[in-house]
Design a protein around this nucleic acid. Structure first.
Lengths: 188, 188
DNA sequence: GTCTATATCAAGATAGAC
DNA sequence: GTCTATCTTGATATAGAC
């Protein structure tokens, strides 16, 4: 904790940042310890001191991703008025934020993990199960919530694989549709 | 073509089947030529005669996936009554069919490709762009169509990564919601 | 805590026999 | 068209110095 003061990042953080950026730029399957070490500004040996194996590194990437999305959701909770389908509104808003900046790169860590070792995705599985449980328990309109959630996940999956055909305006419009669906539901 | 008669599969087909199954069972990042050859019942040399490189194999997997989904959509077109948001109904129905049987494994080929070499996903990008164009031109309710499409893609992405928390009943219910959304739109 | 050097190994690809 | 044998590379991981 002490080495986090005054903007100083621990080696661990620097390594996770470097790995996330690399996955975004060269692709999950090409992520090597050597490339991560170079980008993080240390040697392979130094990296392996912080993360004793590649699996450990991937696990760290996944865990940080999950933690950041959860934190984002809780931050939003403080600024969001209560009302219809609250959990789904928080969840979709947090996921839509992954678009900007580093979050998307980090999300790509998931791909690296799933291609190397599917078992590493367990923390993600847990969050997804928890999300579904919360929605079942608190939603005012479960069908609308599930569609909204899945649509945002679909959009993110496109972006993670660099498959998205959508412009920024398209994206804003889709986000607005998601909001509207959560507020008004599916027409009868 | 001749060696497709009477259920006899060409080596090419057997190899693509084997690769698809393997990606489903051991994960995209662990797909090796040796494993594919063994499962397809020939040697590495024999495999490399059919597909001169691993990239060529991945490309073949992707192309077959894209072709099968397109074919499924056109088959459905013959059995689907015209009406509201036709293209989106065909598209979502075809994508939802990927759930059953081999299609899901084949879809995993996409993951293998994207982790090894993102450029191989170009055929998928094309289909997605074409789908968006068609929806823009023919949809009666573009917002509903996009949400429905993305929701199905989100569901598939969960299943492709083995992240889906949904039971068969959940899945049926979601499929019904998608249909309803396409028929009735978002409530005002 | 980080470095260099090296062991080890797996995987893609080639060559040439059959 | 398929096989075996081999080459070559690149990546993980270890060992031990600093």
């Amino acid at each position: 904790m002490f080495n986090c003061i005054r903007g100083r990042k621990s080696s661990r953080e620097k390594i996770l940042d470097a790995a996330a950026e690399l996955v975004g730029s060269i692709g999950a399957g090409r992520l090597t310890l050597e490339a991560v070490a170079e980008r993080a500004g240390l040697s392979k040996g130094g990296l392996l001191y912080n993360f004793p194996s590649k699996d450990a590194l991937l696990q760290g990437m996944i865990q940080r991703l999950v933690d950041e999305v959860s934190a984002e959701k809780e931050t939003l909770r403080g600024h969001t008025p209560p009302g219809r389908n609250l959990e789904a509104r928080l969840c979709t808003a947090a996921l839509l934020k992954m678009h900007a900046g580093k979050m998307k790169d980090i999300a790509n860590g998931m791909l690296a993990a799933s291609s190397e070792n599917p078992a590493l995705l367990e923390p993600v599985r847990q969050v997804i199960r928890k999300t579904l449980t919360e929605m079942r328990e608190t939603s005012d309109d479960l069908d609308a919530c599930l569609l909204a959630w899945l649509a945002v996940e679909g959009l993110n999956s496109f972006e993670m694989h660099d498959l998205s055909p959508f412009s920024e305006e398209d994206r804003d419009r889709i986000a607005a549709s998601v909001t509207k669906l959560l507020e008004n539901g599916i027409a009868e």
